[in-house]
Amino acid sequence: MKIIMSSIEKLYKWSRLNSLWPLTYATSCCGIEMMSVSASNYDIARFGSEVFRGSPRQADLLIVAGTLTLKMSPILLRLYEQMAEPKYVIAMGACACSGGMYRNSSYSVVKGVDTIIPVDIYLPMCPPKPESLIDALIKLRKKLNDKNPGGRFV
């Protein structure tokens, strides 16, 4: 019985790793870098996440690309809740990690996305190069491989 459970768990982890479907959520400059990652020079399709799903139901990777303002935060929260259970978040860009340069001098920027939703991977640099976004994706995959799968098969 043990062998079956562990093999199912390994299969579950392997399948989750290789098909992370990102949600088309792009607010500002990092959104353009996310688009150029899905273009043909730095191909994110190699990692199986080329399908950019429009509706949050079918997406399981939320790349918060761009600045999060006060008016937009309730919408981001609702998007996060609508996503199906094993979901992961990459905070892309300095504005999403910690409010970036707007942290001390802007009245309408939320100081970091982690005040609202739990974040798995922080990606600084403004805007991060497409290679560093792929590097973040690889680190996310490594992280999922080690820790227990979460979701249903805890």
Partner: peptide, 27 residues
Amino acid sequence: YLHRGMEKMAETSTYIQYLPIVDRIDY
């Protein structure tokens, strides 16, 4: 939904500090 208060930032930062911020207005 993307109002980051660029004009208020100008009042609290010097001329050199505002130079890199300017690229983010129309990225």
